[in-house]
Protein backbone atom coordinates (compact mmCIF):
# COMPACT_ATOMS: atom_id res chain seq x y z
CA UNK A 1 0.00 0.00 0.00
CA UNK A 2 1.38 3.34 -1.02
CA UNK A 3 1.35 5.91 1.73
CA UNK A 4 1.08 9.31 0.25
CA UNK A 5 2.06 12.05 2.58
CA UNK A 6 2.26 15.76 2.14
CA UNK A 7 4.92 17.61 4.09
CA UNK A 8 3.22 19.67 6.75
CA UNK A 9 3.86 23.39 6.44
CA UNK A 10 3.71 23.71 10.23
CA UNK A 11 4.85 21.15 12.80
CA UNK A 12 2.14 18.55 13.33
CA UNK A 13 0.66 18.14 16.79
CA UNK A 14 1.41 14.87 18.55
CA UNK A 15 -0.23 11.74 17.24
CA UNK A 16 -2.28 11.47 20.43
CA UNK A 17 -4.80 13.80 18.89
CA UNK A 18 -6.05 10.90 16.83
CA UNK A 19 -6.86 8.86 19.89
CA UNK A 20 -8.97 11.29 21.90
CA UNK A 21 -12.52 12.34 21.31
CA UNK A 22 -13.95 15.80 21.03
CA UNK A 23 -12.20 17.21 24.08
CA UNK A 24 -8.81 16.55 22.43
CA UNK A 25 -6.39 19.31 21.48
CA UNK A 26 -8.03 21.93 19.43
CA UNK A 27 -7.04 23.95 16.40
CA UNK A 28 -7.63 27.69 16.41
CA UNK A 29 -11.17 28.29 15.26
CA UNK A 30 -11.56 31.23 12.90
CA UNK A 31 -15.03 32.22 14.04
CA UNK A 32 -15.72 31.62 17.72
CA UNK A 33 -19.47 31.67 17.07
CA UNK A 34 -19.13 28.61 14.87
CA UNK A 35 -18.83 25.02 16.03
CA UNK A 36 -15.37 23.55 16.25
CA UNK A 37 -13.80 22.55 12.93
CA UNK A 38 -13.29 18.80 12.73
CA UNK A 39 -11.75 18.93 9.28
CA UNK A 40 -9.89 21.91 7.98
CA UNK A 41 -9.37 21.43 4.27
CA UNK A 42 -6.91 23.73 2.47
CA UNK A 43 -6.27 23.64 -1.27
CA UNK A 44 -6.90 19.95 -1.38
CA UNK A 45 -6.48 18.22 -4.74
CA UNK A 46 -6.75 14.52 -5.46
CA UNK A 47 -5.25 13.05 -8.62
CA UNK A 48 -5.59 9.63 -10.18
CA UNK A 49 -2.28 9.17 -11.97
CA UNK A 50 -1.58 12.62 -13.37
CA UNK A 51 -5.23 13.57 -13.80
CA UNK A 52 -6.73 15.66 -11.03
CA UNK A 53 -10.24 14.45 -10.13
CA UNK A 54 -10.95 17.34 -7.81
CA UNK A 55 -8.90 20.51 -7.30
CA UNK A 56 -8.24 23.23 -4.78
CA UNK A 57 -10.93 22.47 -2.24
CA UNK A 58 -10.93 24.68 0.82
CA UNK A 59 -13.61 24.09 3.41
CA UNK A 60 -14.24 23.32 7.04
CA UNK A 61 -16.36 20.51 8.38
CA UNK A 62 -17.79 21.44 11.74
CA UNK A 63 -18.35 19.34 14.77
CA UNK A 64 -21.82 17.94 15.36
CA UNK A 65 -23.08 19.11 12.00
CA UNK A 66 -24.23 17.23 8.95
CA UNK A 67 -22.39 18.42 5.89
CA UNK A 68 -23.76 17.44 2.50
CA UNK A 69 -21.65 17.22 -0.66
CA UNK A 70 -23.74 17.65 -3.78
CA UNK A 71 -22.88 17.96 -7.45
CA UNK A 72 -23.17 16.23 -10.80
CA UNK A 73 -21.91 12.69 -11.33
CA UNK A 74 -18.16 12.43 -11.73
CA UNK A 75 -17.33 15.77 -10.11
CA UNK A 76 -15.27 14.09 -7.41
CA UNK A 77 -17.58 13.91 -4.39
CA UNK A 78 -16.65 10.35 -3.53
CA UNK A 79 -13.00 11.12 -4.14
CA UNK A 80 -13.13 14.05 -1.72
CA UNK A 81 -15.04 12.01 0.86
CA UNK A 82 -12.56 9.16 0.67
CA UNK A 83 -9.68 11.51 1.31
CA UNK A 84 -11.22 12.32 4.73
CA UNK A 85 -10.45 8.84 6.08
CA UNK A 86 -7.55 8.01 3.79
CA UNK A 87 -9.48 5.39 1.85
CA UNK A 88 -7.82 6.88 -1.22
CA UNK A 89 -4.59 5.32 0.02
CA UNK A 90 -6.01 2.00 -1.13
CA UNK A 91 -6.10 3.14 -4.75
CA UNK A 92 -2.50 2.86 -5.93
CA UNK A 93 -2.78 5.65 -8.49
CA UNK A 94 -4.42 8.16 -6.13
CA UNK A 95 -2.38 11.08 -4.81
CA UNK A 96 -3.50 13.75 -2.38
CA UNK A 97 -2.09 17.27 -2.41
CA UNK A 98 -2.76 20.21 -0.15
CA UNK A 99 -3.54 19.93 3.52
CA UNK A 100 -6.25 18.20 5.42
CA UNK A 101 -6.27 18.80 9.13
CA UNK A 102 -8.27 16.81 11.62
CA UNK A 103 -8.55 18.72 14.88
CA UNK A 104 -5.49 20.61 13.74
CA UNK A 105 -3.40 17.58 12.89
CA UNK A 106 -2.26 16.92 9.35
CA UNK A 107 -4.01 13.67 8.40
CA UNK A 108 -1.47 12.97 5.69
CA UNK A 109 1.62 13.54 7.82
CA UNK A 110 4.15 10.75 7.58
CA UNK A 111 3.74 9.54 11.14
CA UNK A 112 -0.04 9.25 10.93
CA UNK A 113 -1.25 5.67 10.68
CA UNK A 114 -4.18 5.40 8.25
CA UNK A 115 -5.53 2.50 10.30
CA UNK A 116 -5.92 4.78 13.31
CA UNK A 117 -7.45 7.46 11.11
CA UNK A 118 -10.10 5.07 9.80
CA UNK A 119 -10.93 3.95 13.27
CA UNK A 120 -11.78 7.51 14.27
CA UNK A 121 -13.45 8.36 10.99
CA UNK A 122 -15.94 5.70 9.94
CA UNK A 123 -17.51 5.21 6.55
CA UNK A 124 -20.77 3.90 5.14
CA UNK A 125 -20.68 2.98 1.48
CA UNK A 126 -23.10 3.48 -1.37
CA UNK A 127 -23.80 -0.20 -1.79
CA UNK A 128 -24.51 -2.00 1.48
CA UNK A 129 -21.44 -4.18 2.05
CA UNK A 130 -22.01 -6.40 5.07
CA UNK A 131 -19.47 -9.12 5.73
CA UNK A 132 -20.57 -12.65 4.74
CA UNK A 133 -21.08 -13.47 8.40
CA UNK A 134 -23.80 -13.32 11.01
CA UNK A 135 -25.49 -10.06 11.97
CA UNK A 136 -23.81 -10.23 15.35
CA UNK A 137 -20.34 -10.81 13.88
CA UNK A 138 -20.78 -7.90 11.49
CA UNK A 139 -21.21 -5.50 14.38
CA UNK A 140 -18.67 -7.21 16.64
CA UNK A 141 -15.88 -7.24 14.06
CA UNK A 142 -14.85 -3.59 14.50
CA UNK A 143 -14.66 -3.65 18.32
CA UNK A 144 -12.77 -6.96 18.18
CA UNK A 145 -10.08 -5.86 15.75
CA UNK A 146 -9.68 -2.60 17.61
CA UNK A 147 -9.11 -4.50 20.83
CA UNK A 148 -11.91 -2.63 22.58
CA UNK A 149 -12.27 -4.02 26.08
CA UNK A 150 -16.04 -3.96 26.32
CA UNK A 151 -19.04 -6.16 26.87
CA UNK A 152 -19.48 -7.22 23.24
CA UNK A 153 -23.09 -8.40 23.57
CA UNK A 154 -24.05 -5.10 25.11
CA UNK A 155 -22.18 -3.10 22.50
CA UNK A 156 -23.76 -5.05 19.65
CA UNK A 157 -27.19 -4.40 21.10
CA UNK A 158 -26.60 -0.68 21.66
CA UNK A 159 -25.17 -0.23 18.19
CA UNK A 160 -28.07 -2.04 16.56
CA UNK A 161 -30.53 -0.03 18.66
CA UNK A 162 -28.90 3.25 17.64
CA UNK A 163 -29.05 2.16 14.01
CA UNK A 164 -32.79 1.48 14.49
CA UNK A 165 -32.34 -2.15 13.54
CA UNK A 166 -32.51 -3.93 16.88
CA UNK A 167 -36.22 -4.70 16.90
CA UNK A 168 -36.01 -6.29 13.47
CA UNK A 169 -33.04 -8.52 14.18
CA UNK A 170 -33.05 -9.20 17.93
CA UNK A 171 -34.32 -12.75 17.45
CA UNK A 172 -31.94 -13.67 14.65
CA UNK A 173 -28.56 -12.24 15.52
CA UNK A 174 -26.86 -15.40 14.31
CA UNK A 175 -28.54 -15.29 10.90
CA UNK A 176 -26.46 -14.31 7.91
CA UNK A 177 -26.31 -10.60 7.21
CA UNK A 178 -27.24 -11.46 3.63
CA UNK A 179 -30.66 -12.59 4.79
CA UNK A 180 -31.53 -8.93 5.46
CA UNK A 181 -33.16 -6.56 3.00
CA UNK A 182 -31.09 -3.86 1.33
CA UNK A 183 -32.31 -1.16 3.72
CA UNK A 184 -31.68 -3.37 6.73
CA UNK A 185 -28.22 -4.20 5.42
CA UNK A 186 -27.44 -0.50 5.13
CA UNK A 187 -28.59 0.10 8.70
CA UNK A 188 -26.42 -2.86 9.72
CA UNK A 189 -23.48 -1.15 8.05
CA UNK A 190 -24.28 1.99 10.02
CA UNK A 191 -24.49 -0.05 13.24
CA UNK A 192 -21.15 -1.59 12.38
CA UNK A 193 -19.64 1.87 11.90
CA UNK A 194 -21.10 3.15 15.19
CA UNK A 195 -19.82 0.14 17.12
CA UNK A 196 -16.21 1.33 17.05
CA UNK A 197 -17.34 4.68 18.47
CA UNK A 198 -15.89 6.98 15.82
CA UNK A 199 -15.83 10.77 15.79
CA UNK A 200 -17.00 11.23 12.27
CA UNK A 201 -19.14 9.13 9.97
CA UNK A 202 -18.70 9.57 6.24
CA UNK A 203 -21.60 8.41 4.09
CA UNK A 204 -21.34 8.01 0.34
CA UNK A 205 -24.86 8.05 -1.11
CA UNK A 206 -26.07 5.74 1.65
CA UNK A 207 -29.65 5.71 0.38
CA UNK A 208 -29.11 5.34 -3.34
CA UNK A 209 -30.03 1.65 -3.27
CA UNK A 210 -33.03 2.11 -0.99
CA UNK A 211 -36.74 2.80 -1.32
CA UNK A 212 -38.31 6.00 0.07
CA UNK A 213 -39.36 4.37 3.34
CA UNK A 214 -35.93 2.92 4.05
CA UNK A 215 -34.46 6.28 3.01
CA UNK A 216 -36.66 8.13 5.47
CA UNK A 217 -35.55 5.78 8.24
CA UNK A 218 -31.90 6.41 7.48
CA UNK A 219 -32.49 10.15 7.38
CA UNK A 220 -34.17 10.02 10.79
CA UNK A 221 -31.24 7.99 11.96
CA UNK A 222 -28.76 10.55 10.71
CA UNK A 223 -30.48 13.29 12.66
CA UNK A 224 -30.29 11.18 15.79
CA UNK A 225 -26.65 10.31 15.21
CA UNK A 226 -25.88 13.97 14.75
CA UNK A 227 -26.13 14.36 18.53
CA UNK A 228 -22.97 12.33 18.97
CA UNK A 229 -21.20 12.35 15.62
CA UNK A 230 -20.11 14.65 12.89
CA UNK A 231 -21.52 13.44 9.60
CA UNK A 232 -20.46 14.10 6.03
CA UNK A 233 -22.84 12.77 3.40
CA UNK A 234 -22.61 12.62 -0.37
CA UNK A 235 -26.01 12.68 -1.97
CA UNK A 236 -27.59 13.07 -5.38
CA UNK A 237 -30.90 13.76 -3.78
CA UNK A 238 -31.38 17.50 -3.44
CA UNK A 239 -34.34 17.12 -1.09
CA UNK A 240 -32.27 14.86 1.09
CA UNK A 241 -29.50 17.41 1.33
CA UNK A 242 -32.04 20.12 2.13
CA UNK A 243 -33.83 17.94 4.69
CA UNK A 244 -30.94 16.59 6.70
CA UNK A 245 -27.89 18.77 6.32
CA UNK A 246 -26.73 21.87 8.17
CA UNK A 247 -24.24 22.87 5.53
CA UNK A 248 -24.00 22.05 1.86
CA UNK A 249 -21.05 22.06 -0.48
CA UNK A 250 -21.81 22.31 -4.16
CA UNK A 251 -19.10 20.79 -6.35
CA UNK A 252 -19.10 20.78 -10.10
CA UNK A 253 -16.89 19.81 -13.01
CA UNK A 254 -14.79 22.33 -14.83
CA UNK A 255 -12.63 22.12 -17.92
CA UNK A 256 -9.03 22.95 -17.05
CA UNK A 257 -7.60 24.83 -19.99
CA UNK A 258 -4.23 24.85 -18.20
CA UNK A 259 -4.14 21.06 -17.91
CA UNK A 260 -4.79 19.70 -21.38
CA UNK A 261 -8.49 20.55 -21.35
CA UNK A 262 -9.46 17.73 -19.13
CA UNK A 263 -12.18 18.00 -16.56
CA UNK A 264 -11.88 18.07 -12.81
CA UNK A 265 -14.11 18.97 -9.89
CA UNK A 266 -14.18 22.33 -8.09
CA UNK A 267 -15.91 23.46 -4.97
CA UNK A 268 -18.23 26.20 -6.20
CA UNK A 269 -20.06 27.18 -3.07
CA UNK A 270 -20.10 26.08 0.54
CA UNK A 271 -22.53 27.56 2.99
CA UNK A 272 -25.40 26.92 5.36
CA UNK A 273 -27.86 24.64 3.65
CA UNK A 274 -30.78 27.08 3.66
CA UNK A 275 -28.47 29.65 2.12
CA UNK A 276 -27.44 27.28 -0.66
CA UNK A 277 -31.02 26.36 -1.44
CA UNK A 278 -32.77 29.70 -0.84
CA UNK A 279 -30.19 32.24 -1.72
CA UNK A 280 -27.22 30.81 -3.60
CA UNK A 281 -24.44 33.24 -4.40
CA UNK A 282 -23.39 31.56 -7.62
CA UNK A 283 -25.59 31.15 -10.65
CA UNK A 284 -24.24 27.63 -11.20
CA UNK A 285 -25.32 26.61 -7.72
CA UNK A 286 -28.73 28.06 -8.38
CA UNK A 287 -29.00 26.23 -11.71
CA UNK A 288 -28.06 22.98 -10.05
CA UNK A 289 -30.29 23.14 -6.97
CA UNK A 290 -33.26 24.28 -9.02
CA UNK A 291 -32.71 21.41 -11.43
CA UNK A 292 -31.82 23.46 -14.48
CA UNK A 293 -28.47 21.69 -14.78
CA UNK A 294 -26.89 18.30 -14.17
Amino acid sequence: MERTAVPAPVPAPPAEVLRVRHEGSVAPVPDPAEALAVFDVRDLSVCYGDRPAIRDVTMQIRQGEITALIGPSGCGKSTLLRSFNRMNDLIPSARVEGTLRYYGQDLYARDVDPVVVRRRIGMVFQKPNPFPKSIYDNVAFGPKVNGMDVDLDGLVETSLRRAALWDEVRTKLTASAYSLSGGQQQRLCIARAIAVNPDVILMDEPCSALDPIATARIEDLMRELQESYTIVIVTHNMQQAARVSDRTAFITTEVDSDAGDHRSGRLVEFDRTEQIFRNPQHSRTEDYVTGRFG
Binding site: M1, L90, M123, F125, G142, R192
Partner: peptide, 17 residues
Protein backbone atom coordinates in the same frame (compact mmCIF):
# COMPACT_ATOMS: atom_id res chain seq x y z
CA UNK B 1 -15.86 -8.35 -3.53
CA UNK B 2 -13.91 -5.20 -2.90
CA UNK B 3 -16.65 -3.91 -0.65
CA UNK B 4 -15.76 -6.48 1.99
CA UNK B 5 -12.17 -5.29 2.11
CA UNK B 6 -13.18 -1.62 2.10
CA UNK B 7 -15.79 -2.28 4.77
CA UNK B 8 -13.22 -3.92 7.02
CA UNK B 9 -10.55 -1.29 6.48
CA UNK B 10 -13.04 1.53 7.07
CA UNK B 11 -13.62 0.11 10.55
CA UNK B 12 -9.97 0.58 11.41
CA UNK B 13 -8.89 -3.01 10.83
CA UNK B 14 -5.38 -3.52 9.50
CA UNK B 15 -5.01 -5.01 6.02
CA UNK B 16 -3.78 -8.19 7.65
CA UNK B 17 -6.81 -8.41 9.95
Amino acid sequence: PRGIRDGGLALGATPWQ
